[in-house]
Nucleic acid binder design. Structure first.
Lengths: 335, 335
DNA sequence: GATATGCATCGAACCGGTTCGATAGGCCGG
DNA sequence: CCGGCCTATCGAACCGGTTCGATGCATATC
């Protein structure tokens, strides 16, 4: 590997001039610049990014930390960020915390050790310790998906209250009154907002919610399965079920199939968030989806804005909340 | 951030002694070691990984490069690699080439610039130029999934011939003779082997393959959809279809649904590779799956073996080929 | 014609570690 | 008592860049 000193020697200038020429060509005389350019080409010089990062104190890498890289929701966002970053000569390092807060923390610390230029984080936890940790991060960052109380950072996400409300309204209009709700973890903002959207819409419609029909508490497949089973063995079985995310809704579908219930003939089903291959699942599930592409675009733009404008540190954090989109399927029946 | 010099000052030893103590404690006297330990704790010293990598010429990071991080096949492998690497104090950098060879190359070069300790790569291409590029990589590496002719590296993958053969055999035993095959790109080893498994099993059984029933050529959803449509409008429509991967098979299912064919009553369907949520898809598709966990384990072990045994460079590359597993569903009917 | 201004270039310090050869002191055997 | 060997520690060079203050020279100003 050729170093900057090889270039300097060949071009008969000092090392510092080469460095200057490469990072700020206009500050070097045209003829010297040309000599340096030729020398660079001659020896095939490429700057060592590690040495650059060490000297500059920051690299051109962006950290991307989520709980599940395989989730298409995060995948779409990742893709947007990658493309935008690449256009701006940045490089995205993807990491996966498996939803474990400890691992997330280790990953973030490792990334900061790598002197990343910026961080896009889908927070995996909450509470004072967690908030303190996030707040201690000095690197430009954007949080997304999960709004966590106390974190004062740019945030990009969807209107989850609206998402819950839309599905509830839809089912009410189809005549459903006994609507089951498989909820997510109460402490997660997405989960509580979606539930609030459900509860308030029911209340506005003057329909009382049977507390036995609100189940769950995990956004996982197994949690959803168990919760769905509880709904299905209820004597006053619901006529429709809302899954607060894709995993619990699909688990509910599986439980229904296993118990011999037909969807939508026996029970209607609706969910929040898309899944891959949703179009080949029978029935096609009525859902409310987030505009992942737009979310990703905003995250990317916001993060790179903060990265490339050093003054942006003083800009107060801002929330970007997008409205989700209703996608009708054939999993909900009028009764 | 505390530096190694702060530690040295506080412990009243030289910088080199601190470095030595930290990397090779046995070569420092017990009492000095203790002083250094206390100093480290006192100033909260953590070595800067960037500076270490620069000085050592290699880091403790492992590059993971695949065409689609969101694919659960790669996701499972990634998880195994991450866990194993973490146990050995290595850190996995995930990157996504979107299947674009140019991007893959840029990513690999970037990772090498980061002085990664090792590389796990799912090759995205083939041909002399590509092979030459891969062969030029000096970093310890393991290739997986796609076996590429000419690349002399450790390889970990599944027996794709067997995968194709198993499904074919299954359908033959159910009485099918007019079996359609949606193939992948001919130049991809997985695709050609799967096809070969199909063709040879048919031949052994003395069943002639109608060339019109072998369609496709892309492992994508849209490619599979188009190919399936061609099969379905064929006058001599197949009684069963094999999708050479999950994407084309599910696209075929969608096409069948859209044209009003019932699976498996009208047409049977079988596929290679699993998908997420396969259990909620109606019908449950009969498939042959790869043991992703085991694949990931082998990749991880092999790579870390090469990384931590410098002599291992002389070990000749080795192929690890696992047998896939048959998972019956209810998408194939006896006729 | 002396002084101020600006520009191109350079040298040296620095980022934060590692590594190797040198040195000094302690212990051994002869 | 002295030479030889071992061990603990150190200093300096190095990895490959960046950055800032200094320098020298040419042009603009009064």
């Amino acid at each position: 590997m050729a170093t900057i000193r090889d270039v300097a020697k060949l071009a008969e200038v000092s090392v510092s001039t080469v460095s200057l020429a490469l990072s700020n060509p206009s500050r070097v005389s045209p003829k010297t610049l040309e000599r340096i350019r030729q020398a660079v080409a001659a020896v095939g010089y490429v700057a060592d990014p590690l040495a650059q990062s060490l000297a500059r104190g920051r690299s051109r890498m962006i950290g991307f930390v989520v709980g599940n890289v395989g989730n298409p929701f995060f995948g779409d966002i990742r893709r947007e960020l990658e493309n935008y970053a690449l256009e701006h000569e940045h490089f995205v390092l993807i990491t996966d915390s498996s939803g474990q807060t400890e691992r997330e923390r280790a990953l973030v610390e490792h990334l900061i050790g790598l002197k990343i230029a910026g961080l896009a984080l889908a927070p995996s936890s909450f509470g004072p310790d967690y908030v303190a940790f996030i707040q201690s991060i000095k690197v430009p960052m954007v949080c997304f998906d999960q709004k966590v109380a106390g974190i004062e950072r740019d945030f990009v996400g969807s209107d989850n209250f609206l998402a819950g409300a839309m599905l509830t309204e839809h089912l009410l209009q189809l005549g459903h009154r006994r609507i089951g709700f498989i909820a997510g973890p109460k402490h997660m903002n997405t989960a509580s907002e979606r539930y609030r959207g459900f509860a308030e819409t029911m209340a506005s419609a003057g329909v009382e919610v049977n507390p036995k029909l609100v189940v769950g508490g995990l956004f996982t497949r197994s949690g959803g399965y168990e919760a769905a089973m509880r709904l299905l063995i209820e004597p006053e079985r619901p006529t429709a079920i809302i899954g607060a995310n894709n995993a619990v809704a699909l688990a509910a579908l599986q439980a229904m199939q296993e118990l011999g219930f037909s969807c939508p003939d026996d029970i209607s089903l609706a969910m929040i968030d898309n899944i891959q291959w949703s179009s080949v699942i029978t029935p096609r599930i009525t859902m409310v989806v987030q505009d992942t592409q737009k979310l990703g675009g905003i995250i990317a733009r916001r993060l790179l804005h903060r990265i490339s404008n050093p003054d942006a540190v003083h800009e107060p954090p801002q929330d970007f909340v997008l409205s989700p989109r209703f996608v009708p399927g054939n999993s909900c029946k009028r009764i």
